[in-house]
Design a protein around this nucleic acid. Structure first.
Lengths: 186, 186
DNA sequence: TCATTTCTGTAGTGAACGCTACACATCGGA
DNA sequence: TCCGATGTGTAGCGTTCACTACAGAAATGA
């Protein structure tokens, strides 16, 4: 998973993977049918581990605002960690691809789409809870915050410091306060 | 340039390029010494053409706010155009790479860094002009808007509609109004 | 018209790709 | 101790990669 995360799908060879695992190619193919299936398993592992920060924020935070803020900040902290690849694997590992590998790109695009939809549902829950204005365009607002989150992955991969990533999250949350100030909630 | 833009550096083969150009490999190598140099020329062409929207916004718009807004909206419109690859080549063509091609990734990262610095200088000009609060952290604010811009490339590549990209730009500008309202300018 | 130069299409280089056949080592159960 | 099964290392499969030698076509200048 970490090799795919660091180098992307097309930038990772089977030799890279077997070297990282300390096994030979036949052992790898005894466990996974092909490179594509192995990548899918790596994505599933990534979702189950690194994706937990976002899931937790959307599930456990009391308000939609704090959920969005926690999603940005917790991921920003994870993206800049020095002990592993920077940024988000789902965002970085295959932004472009040869037509032969377009299914891989589409797989990650679908995962990103699910992130938008999960945030959108959380915003709708906020409307139901009364902490988000009823007239809010939840689809667009969810797209905005996922856009910032995806941009943070590029920033992190380019070496932007965690302090700056946090400042970016600040600016993004300022937008929330401008559009959905608590005072206007019924 | 369009092939690299669509498929990325590692996703593009010499055969893809010669097919798109309608020439043979020897003709290509008579004009460019290697794949990497050809890519650099494609990036230079991209900067000179597609980069003009951002340059124009930062150069010709009267205030820092309108410059940022024009940068986001003009690029958002370009990113979603149906007659060519979606999103920004500089952002998408090599977010990750094999160690062998890391120079390519670093080349694009340096170009992205220049975008942040160009925006930062425009914000400083806004302070000098009096349309940006003097206490503004120009480095962080520039990083924020470039983060949104880079996120828009991911969104565009995932097929997000131009209307939604525009709405995302709206939210990003709402952040400006929250942090740097015109009323507070001296 | 012809010699010279420039270009291009064919064909193929060595290396790296994803993937696999096969012999051998290792190990649990009888 | 022996046997069958499982798993691994070596070696190599066919293909594609970036890149090039070379011969013939096309274009240029006298």
């Amino acid at each position: 998973m970490e090799v795919f995360w660091e180098r992307g799908y097309e930038g990772t060879s089977i030799a890279d993977l077997t070297a990282a695992m300390g096994i030979g190619a036949p052992s790898l193919y005894a466990a996974f049918s092909c490179k594509e299936e192995l990548f899918q398993e790596a994505v599933a592992l990534y979702d189950a581990t690194e994706g937990e920060a976002t899931n937790r924020a959307l599930r456990d935070e009391p308000t939609a605002r704090s959920a969005v803020e926690a999603m940005l900040r917790d991921n920003a902290r994870n993206y800049a960690r020095a002990d592993r690849p920077t940024g988000c694997m789902i965002v970085l590992a295959a932004t472009t691809a040869s037509p032969r590998n377009d299914a891989i790109r589409a797989l990650l695009a679908a995962s990103r789409q699910r992130s938008i939809e999960a945030l959108e549902r959380r915003l709708e829950q906020g409307i139901a809870d009364g902490d988000v204005p009823a007239k809010t365009d939840t689809a667009s607002l969810a797209a905005f915050y996922v856009t910032v989150l995806e941009g943070l992955s590029i920033r992190a991969r380019d070496g932007t410091s965690q302090e700056t990533l946090d400042a970016i999250a600040d600016y993004a949350m300022a937008s929330w306060d401008a559009l959905a100030p608590p005072a206007t909630v019924a």
